[in-house]
């Protein structure tokens, strides 16, 4: 069912590829033989009813599950051809290449500047001018520079919810990752902040590959080039977004996108 046709005339590259991925929380199997492709510099959306495994799949890409005991992967996620689920691969290095934006804005109790510089410092960058440059670039990338440039030393908590989420996006892109994962990034935001984040994603995909979990089909339709529909831990259908919504191949997808369940 995995559709990997080329959409544009431009050359499309596979940034990542999931192959027969099973995932277990202890003995509970949360992902069942999931396969999909993540195209370079495209937005890929994961949709499906609550509890179907979207977050679980997303957090495999940066090996977030390694933080907690008892979790187990089976299968492959190839990032630029390398299986990042291999035992000998350090999850910390994976996370430096695959960053993440969470459901609720989670800025650190630090200044705006230090929030963006956090990942850079973690990676060992200490040179002030380089940090300044990368922080500015990231804030510009997250469309926050104009609002924040005069208050870089202020605590991040002084920002509004939408600004905080854009700050978290700046933090996630500052290290120039290969993929940015978004887990329902607008679910805690008002409609205006939501649409500014969606616009931002459109700009970001010029630079970086995006994988986004969303509970809103409208949002998936608005922001993504590809959409994967998941159900009960399985990948039901994966296709170009407009095809998946307009000509779903699977009856379950058809039912879900037409709002019959979920």
């Amino acid at each position: 069912m995995v559709d990997t046709r080329v959409v544009n005339s431009s050359v499309m590259e596979r940034k990542a590829e999931v192959k027969n991925l099973d995932f277990y929380y202890g003995s509970a199997k949360a992902l069942k033989s999931v396969s999909m492709v993540v195209w370079d510099r495209r937005v890929t959306a994961l949709i499906g009813p609550s509890g179907c495994g979207k977050t679980t799949l997303l957090r495999c890409f940066n090996r977030m599950h390694d933080l907690y005991p008892g979790n187990r992967y089976d299968g492959e996620i190839l990032l630029d051809g390398v299986n990042i689920l291999e035992k000998q691969i350090d999850p910390i290095e994976v996370r430096m290449r695959v960053s993440m934006v969470f459901q609720r804005p989670n800025p650190f109790p630090k200044s705006i500047y230090e929030n963006v510089a956090y990942g850079l410092r973690v990676q060992g960058i200490t040179e002030k001018s380089l940090l300044d440059e990368k922080v500015e670039k990231a804030l510009q990338g997250a469309a926050l520079w104009n609002e924040a440039k005069d208050r870089l030393k202020e605590p991040a908590y002084n920002l509004s919810g939408g600004q905080q989420q854009r700050l978290c996006i700046a933090r996630a892109i500052a290290t120039e990752p290969n993929i940015v994962l978004f887990d329902e990034p607008t679910s805690a935001l008002d409609p205006i902040a939501t649409s500014s984040i969606e616009e931002l994603m459109n700009e970001l995909k010029e630079q970086v590959t995006i994988l986004i979990v969303t509970h809103s089909m409208q949002q998936a339709a608005r922001v993504s080039d590809y959409t994967a529909f998941m159900y009960l831990g399985e990948m039901v259908e994966f296709n170009e977004t407009n095809l998946l919504f307009n000509k779903p191949a699977d009856q379950k997808t058809q039912d879900y996108v037409s709002g019959r369940f979920g």
Partner: peptide, 10 residues
């Protein structure tokens, strides 16, 4: 907040 830090590779 902790996961936010781990997610940067900390």
């Amino acid at each position: 907040l902790k996961e936010g830090s781990y997610a940067t590779g900390a």
